[in-house]
Design a protein around this nucleic acid. Structure first.
Lengths: 363, 363
DNA sequence: TCGATTTCTGAAATCGATTTCAGACTTAGG
DNA sequence: CCTAAGTCTGAAATCGATTTCAGAAATCGA
């Protein structure tokens, strides 16, 4: 009664259909079957159809290991993101996968939890798997990682940043410039007393660090440099946004504008502001970064910076596909971000100097 | 001046270090090197160390394609999710990847956009890649897909549901039971006039369909079956939650409780309720499903069902690792969900019959 | 010291698909 | 009708690591 198929202990139970089986059935050589599959145009149509029928009949699929061995190409790309919990990374990965899939590539995924050591391990494992290309996130990558990539001579691109060191090409936005612009916008509205909430705790989060620098630079240039207590460092979470705002307003009750380096922090800050009875934007302007789906639905809708995550993912895919094929590729791609002015920001109630025009609220 | 390394056009530029190179350097045969790597214990220690040194010197890593070809094992698992945009799937995938990585497996990822045809294509592609196991989502899978899996005799598990047809094992929660409980809770609070907002538009979203059925069943059992106009079908988005609520209240202005099949819809509904000047929960109770991070931070915090996504991901990984190794595996695993009573739900203002006790608000 | 075990190591076959090379067949031109 | 050019197809080598099988070396007992 050996009816129930035992789970194959070593090799497969029903020996896989091989190219030779198809060849025999179709009365041709394995070479011809291979040609039908790989270069259909060089096989006589009627023969091609006949072989095709048998391929379908037997439900034959090529063994990718054998294929990869012979061709040296795995048709596989790997991506290492800090985490998938952030919608912005998930969106990028999804776009990346979709574009790769269209070109017959399959995507390995790994996550580093913002830990450079883990990133290195995962990369090692991916390289051993013979990936043809690798997508990273951010600009902070250790020397070891770079030399590993170089040694493996695998095309690489890093994402979500405008440039990265070590000769690694990048595709993304200029984070510093984005917050600089955002800050300048708030300055133009008439704000003078700022606070910043930044998730710069994780060592490898260069993006948020760049964003914080953008804020600082703009304010320094305006002659209003931030004091350390005007900057609250946080981890990434909504709850941290809440506590950060509370702390900020404890130290500086007269703050009129709070710039956050992520929407999550900003949303947390807004929730806390509401709880503290502060009207947004009347008494407090709050801005975020990322433009997550929820940002537009907040009450009031959140002023933020929109990051073209899907475009980044697609761009990274295209870059690698070209690089793998040996086509020329750009050094780096800087994508435009978009400042999205919504109603969580407005001129301060009692502006030091009156806003330039009467109803210059937003937009 | 051929200094700048041209991107390898066909094969690798610097020919990969092979096992034979190591063998030659160490003055042994390739077989010995292989043994050092795979069965170190059967090689004389001093020889083993010598070979090891050369392996490190040459930075040799095995070609995984050749290895997979010979052994028939890729040490690779694939997952197909509807989308990564939903935090709940992203969280599950992350946990899945982490657990797999610990066991030396690498994860292929693909997404179906709730399209069964795409799911089938991606699966086909994954199977051709020789994956050792596959993780799916949900219970609606076409016959074709099931026969493909059977034919490939690849271990499979489906996630986020308590059971699936076609002999596919599952790990997840009982969605129908969860909404049934949620509905019964609202009934106990004294609600009589219900509305449901369900994202059942996508053909393959069996989870939300099960959730809707749970609501319907509970209300039928209570003698309050939902009329078709009391059910608003939506796609998955916050904006749809808004418009759904508006439509629901247009048709049934006296509704006191709205049950949504996802938090996103519920959050949209809450936003719209606020805009319409309806107090939540005083005049309208709203509940969600998923317990996304934001749910607890809403104002008022959202009553919802918590789904153990990370546990599902880990469980799926463990299942496959065992199944691949030939170890015995459970038929299915039903994980507990958790009803999280927060303040978006309360007894109706003018309950048909008074709530059983005076201050039976929630929890 | 010699033969019998036991322990290690190496030669060679193998996994399955791809591709070169050359041969067989078809078609066109004279 | 025959040769030349062109079109297809098949035999066999190849990719790199693993593993069987058998032989060489080392160990042990007598």
């Amino acid at each position: 009664m050996d009816k129930k198929p035992v789970i194959a202990p070593k090799g497969r139970l029903q020996p896989r259909v091989k190219i030779e089986d198809v060849a025999r059935k179709a009365n041709v050589s394995p070479a011809t079957v291979s040609r039908v599959l790989n270069h259909p145009d060089i096989v006589r149509p009627e023969l091609r159809d006949r072989v095709m029928r048998h391929i379908n009949d037997l439900a034959y699929t090529r063994d990718s290991a054998a294929r990869a061995l012979k061709s040296g190409r795995m048709r596989t790309v790997g991506v290492i993101v800090p985490t998938l919990a952030l919608g912005i990374f998930a969106e990028g990965v999804e776009a990346l996968q979709n574009r790769l899939s269209e070109s017959g590539y399959t995507l390995f995924i790994a996550n580093s939890q913002y830990d450079q050591r883990r990133e290195l391990q995962e990369l090692q494992s991916l390289i051993e798997r013979g990936i043809d290309g690798i997508v990273l996130v951010g600009a902070s990558h250790g020397r070891e990682l770079r030399s590993l990539i170089e040694q493996a001579s695998v095309p690489v691109i890093t994402t979500y940043v405008a440039k990265a060191g070590g000769g690694i090409p990048a595709i993304g936005i200029d984070n510093e410039s984005a917050t600089r612009e955002m800050t300048e916008y708030l300055l133009r509205l008439g704000h003078v007393r700022f606070g910043a909430i930044a998730n710069v705790v994780a060592a490898s989060n260069d993006r948020s660090r760049a964003r914080l620098e953008g804020i600082q630079r703009a304010l320094s240039d305006a002659g209003l440099p931030l004091k350390p207590t005007q900057i609250v460092k946080a981890d990434y979470s909504l709850a941290q946004g809440r506590s950060a705002l509370r702390q900020l307003l404890t130290d500086h009750p007269d703050t009129t504008a709070v710039i956050c380096t992520t929407d999550t922090l900003a949303i947390g800050a807004m929730a806390e502001a509401r709880k503290m009875g502060l009207a947004v934007p009347a008494t407090l302007s709050i801005t975020g970064f990322d433009d997550v789906e929820l940002a537009a639905q907040m009450d009031p809708p959140l002023t933020t910076v929109s990051v073209p995550a899907a475009e980044i993912g697609r761009g990274a895919a295209d870059y690698l596909i070209n690089a793998i094929a040996g086509s020329p590729v750009p050094r780096s791609v800087v994508l435009p971000y978009r400042l999205v002015m919504r109603s969580s920001s407005a001129p301060p109630r009692s502006s030091a100097r009156p806003a330039r025009r009467g109803r210059n609220r937003d937009h």
